[in-house]
Design a protein around this nucleic acid. Structure first.
Length: 427
RNA sequence: GGUGGGGUUCCCGAGUGGUCAAAGGGAUCAGACUGUAAAUCUGACGGCUAAGCCUUCGGAGGUUCAAAUCCUCCCCCCACCA
């Protein structure tokens, strides 16, 4: 089975250029392909996962993926799909972000022995000279055509407009492709559907300058079944950096997937075989929860390692109860089955507190604020007033209920806000 | 540079001297129902030493018993013209 089929089957493909030829190309060659990553943040997030997984599939099928960090283009900002101009970032930030990004990608890609590459387009873009660039590259672009591109249209029609530097983004990205085609024989670029215009521009440029056919694949924008762009939660992005999104929260993010999305996400964000995923589609009711646990476990394993996934699983089990995963379900997953014995909740956020203060008793509201479960006293008061505050599993009745060292159970006080947020206080 | 229109609480958006912590919607949070899902229903949604007080309506001043609302200056955005 070729990569293209794998990607297709798993729902990665939105559009492909020269489908037949690309298929042939991928079957005959150990191809090199690339995807660009914006170094605007120090961490990638779940929104990047589709592209990352696509690269991983490429590598697993014998091709060589290149993750291209836009250190040069990042200084400009891609207007595609954005309604407003992006902040320009500094070189130092880019360097720092690059390090973070590589670390995270290493979980998904094997960078050893040049099996995957991390390149930075700043290496060739920052040295460009204006006049030669215009003469050699600019002449291949038609403004008429560019302004018709979907990626620019929106901005051109917007109130804010499109700045000149952003307008040049397409040329630079096309230049990247051309450069990589020449230096690494990289003939395939992939990207989100908003990148279509940029990718096609690159393919064009490769053809005009080198007379070769390059290819492009775009991925669909993954939305949840409720139509929201996936990976954003009220708290902001779900990061791949464990410092920013703890593995436990990462795990929880996947657990909270909509029923309707579970199978889709399994196909996209795990390496589980499609036969098993098809079975998941048919699940109903509470069984779906078991499938979600598998999804969360697998996704967490990929992003943070088996150990972290195990811990997250156990922590979740200790607060929500261990899920029963039927034997027949998702056989390839190494998720613990049949309720593992000792469950620890060490991934639940915890803090310690000065014992002398506890002796006097601390009002519940204050404790909720101190532990970060509530942002302000008003919020804590509201929470408890509405019945959302719990102490060791018991609902707290009044907001000023004192909590003291008499409330320790097994050496800890377990506070809970609402259904899902916990905090442990240890002596 | 000229002319006109704007900047309101997380977002959109009403409000044009007191009745405004500011309509409505969205988002969010909690509760009920459930399966840590969705949908639905209910409630909350600036802060606090909480029937009271304090801080908010681009910024700084001013008028007034009283200003998001009126005046002055400034900053920013947008449209059209040049």
């Amino acid at each position: 089975m070729s990569v293209l089929e794998v990607l297709n089957e798993r729902g990665f493909v939105e559009a492909v250029t020269h489908e037949g030829e690309l298929k042939e190309y991928l079957e005959k060659n150990n191809a090199t392909c690339y995807i660009g990553f914006d170094p605007t943040g120090s961490s990638l997030h779940v929104g990047h996962l589709v592209t990352i997984m696509a690269l991983a599939h490429m590598q697993r099928n014998g091709h060589r993926p290149i993750a291209l960090v836009g250190g040069g283009t990042g200084l400009i900002g891609d207007p595609s799909g954005k309604t407003e101009m992006r902040k320009v970032i500094t070189h130092e930030q880019v360097d720092e972000n690059k390090r973070g990004i590589k670390g995270q990608l290493s979980r998904f890609l094997d960078f050893s022995d040049g099996k995957a590459l991390l390149l930075d387009n700043a290496d060739w873009l920052t040295g460009l000279e204006y006049i030669p660039f215009l003469r050699d590259i600019g002449r291949h672009f038609s403004v008429n055509r560019m302004i018709k591109a979907e990626s620019y249209k929106m901005r051109i029609e917007s109130e804010e407009g499109l700045s000149f530097i952003e307008f040049n983004y397409m040329l630079l990205q096309a230049y990247d492709f051309m450069k990589l085609a020449k230096s690494h024989d990289c003939m395939l670029q992939m990207g989100g559907s908003d990148q279509w215009g940029n990718i096609v521009a690159g393919i064009d440029l490769v053809r005009r300058t080198q007379g070769k056919t390059a290819f492009g694949i775009t991925f669909p924008l993954i939305t949840t079944s409720s139509g929201i762009k996936m990976g954003k939660t009220h708290k902001g992005a779900v990061w791949l950096d464990p410092e920013r999104t703890a593995p436990y929260d990462y795990y929880q993010f996947w657990i909270n997937t909509d029923d309707a999305d579970v199978a889709k996400f399994m196909a996209l964000f795990t390496f589980m075989p499609m036969e098993e995923i098809k079975e998941v589609e048919a699940l109903e009711g509470a069984q779906m929860n078991a499938a979600k646990a598998v999804l969360a476990y697998e996704a967490t394993t990929i992003a943070h390692g088996a150990e972290a996934a195990q811990k997250a699983f156990e922590a979740a089990a200790s607060v929500f109860g261990a899920p029963t995963i039927p034997e027949g379900l998702c056989g390839s997953s190494s998720i613990p089955r049949g309720g593992s014995g000792a469950v620890s909740a060490e991934s639940v956020p915890s803090s310690s507190i000065d014992m002398s203060r506890l002796e006097q008793g601390i009002a519940a509201v204050d404790l909720f604020v101190e532990t970060g479960l509530s942002k302000s006293k008003g919020e804590a008061r509201r929470l408890i007033g509405q019945g959302g505050g719990y102490l060791n599993g018991e609902r707290i009745d009044t907001f000023d209920q004192p909590i003291s060292n008499g409330d320790f159970k097994d050496g800890e006080i377990l506070l809970r806000a609402g259904k899902k947020r916990y905090h442990k206080i240890v002596a």
